[in-house]
């Protein structure tokens, strides 16, 4: 298995010296599946503590983009920088090691494992037991219980995930992503399975994360999600960035109109480089 290679990039941020480089920067990322080009020269920056929304039609390349960022797919060409350093992600584990956590649309939880086991899956805490390193089940259970309590929730972390409600599972996935203090949190359609009340809770939590300095990348096809959470909206169409906008600088109705235009490619679209 390849390990992440970090090296100083040739890029010299001298022009805006003093400014910190963005947390994540994509330069000319292209991803091809056979003859099909899912991403075509995508440039994207995500700043520290910035919430970026990715929006686009089905098949526009949103999911591929987020999978490149989370290490599931390797780009066919292009460069990825992490805090100004060039980074190659060979697997989801590489992304996690660099502080990039992902919450998948289907949550990617093991239903037969309990909450604590899911939260620590792949990163189990261990302790010494004679000459052996063994799982520290007590520490993991306690830490998981704290996570759930911190999120203002109340359920037994020794319950099987398969017995939880959809909203509870969503929270387990969030708790898992937050357990190791990520720098960035990628979310693919996080509200798809949630009730209105649960969605509001999720937004509150994301707000708190931003305050803690976590960068958020949110993929959704729900305008309201994007408008409520994101500092900046990036529209993807046919594997390219079709445009960006700052929703807080415009009235919501106008933002929505612009987004729709960019997604469908009608009229105004191309000029809107905010």
């Amino acid at each position: 298995m390849p390990t992440p290679q970090s090296e100083m990039s040739g890029h010299n941020p001298g022009a805006d010296s003093g400014a910190r480089p963005p947390l994540i920067e994509l330069r000319g990322i292209t991803k091809k599946f056979g003859g099909y080009t899912a991403l075509d020269g995508v440039d994207l920056k995500i700043g520290e503590a910035e919430a970026v929304g990715i929006i686009g039609d089905n098949g526009a390349g949103k999911s591929t983009l987020v999978k490149v960022l989370s290490g599931v797919h390797r780009p066919s060409s292009g460069t990825m920088l992490f805090r100004g350093q060039k980074l190659t992600l060979g697997s989801p584990l590489d992304a996690r090691r660099n502080g990039v956590e992902m919450i998948y649309q289907d949550l990617a939880l093991c239903e037969d494992l309990d909450v604590a086991q899911n939260i620590f899956l792949g990163r189990e805490l261990k302790k010494n037991f004679g000459p052996f390193r063994v799982l520290d089940r007590q520490a993991m259970t306690e830490a998981a219980a704290n996570d759930i309590a911190d999120m203002g929730l109340d359920f037994d972390v020794e319950r099987e995930v398969g017995q939880l409600s959809g909203g509870e599972r969503q929270m387990v996935a969030v708790a898992r992503a937050l357990q190791f203090d990520p720098a960035a949190l990628l979310m693919d359609e996080p509200t798809a399975a949630l009730s209105a009340e649960k969605i509001r809770k999720l937004w509150e939590m994301i707000g708190r994360l931003k305050q803690r300095g976590v960068s958020i990348l949110l993929v959704s096809h729900r305008f309201t999600d994007i408008l409520n959470i994101c500092d900046r909206i990036v529209v993807v169409r046919a594997g390219r960035i079709a445009g960006e906008m700052m929703p807080h600088e415009l009235p919501p109705a106008q933002t929505m109109a612009m987004m729709t235009e960019m997604m469908t490619g009608d009229t105004v679209g191309n000029g809107a480089e905010a």
């Binding site: 989801p92 990617a108 939880l109 037969d112 494992l113 899956l121």
Partner: peptide
């Protein structure tokens, strides 16, 4: 732990960084 994880949801185990 991983025997159960893989049997329960191999894709989730892989995404959690388990080979």
């Amino acid at each position: 732990r991983y025997i159960y994880a893989i049997g329960s949801n191999a894709r989730a185990a892989r995404l959690a960084g388990i080979s």
